[in-house]
Simulated assay, not measured.
Amino acid sequence: MDHNQTQEQLKNSTLILVLGILSIVTCCCYGVIGIVLGIVTIILAQKATAIYAENPDMYTGFQNVKTGKILAIIGLVLSVLYLLATVWAISTFGWEALQDQELLQQRMQEWAEQNQ
């Protein structure tokens, strides 16, 4: 790298890291928010990676992009699993049972007895 050339922060590198973290934190919001954030983060990371690959000596912050992308993938997987678990719980026990603790316990007992 030429010493006269200054490096600039890779566009959206900090945002990608923050969104990657948020995709994990929000995976428990029925999975939906985590899925959206995970997908957006992965798309932004791919764009930033392409820009970085054209001229790596010109940019800093690529580590944030890599870390954010990994976190987004983890958040996406956790969110999909949480969403599938929620859909399973609703289809197995019903939405009403998820709103009422006693009814949920009753239906879980019935389900456990049927599946022994």
Score class of each variant (00 low, 15 high):
9 Q>S: 11
9 Q>L: 15
10 L>W: 07
10 L>F: 04
10 L>P: 01
11 K>N: 12
11 K>Y: 14
13 S>A: 13
14 T>S: 05
14 T>Y: 14
14 T>E: 08
14 T>I: 10
15 L>K: 13
18 V>L: 10
18 V>Y: 01
18 V>G: 01
24 I>D: 07
25 V>T: 06
26 T>R: 07
26 T>I: 00
26 T>P: 03
28 C>Q: 15
29 C>Q: 12
30 Y>T: 08
31 G>V: 05
33 I>F: 05
33 I>Q: 02
33 I>R: 00
34 G>C: 07
34 G>T: 06
34 G>F: 13
36 V>G: 03
37 L>G: 00
39 I>L: 08
40 V>A: 11
41 T>G: 05
42 I>H: 03
42 I>R: 04
43 I>K: 13
44 L>H: 03
44 L>F: 13
48 A>Q: 09
50 A>Y: 00
55 N>V: 00
57 D>W: 12
60 T>V: 11
60 T>Q: 04
60 T>I: 10
62 F>P: 13
63 Q>T: 11
64 N>T: 08
65 V>Y: 11
72 A>L: 09
75 G>V: 05
75 G>M: 04
75 G>Q: 04
75 G>Y: 00
79 S>K: 09
81 L>P: 07
83 L>Y: 08
84 L>F: 03
85 A>G: 13
88 W>Y: 14
89 A>F: 14
91 S>L: 15
93 F>P: 01
96 E>L: 01
97 A>Q: 08
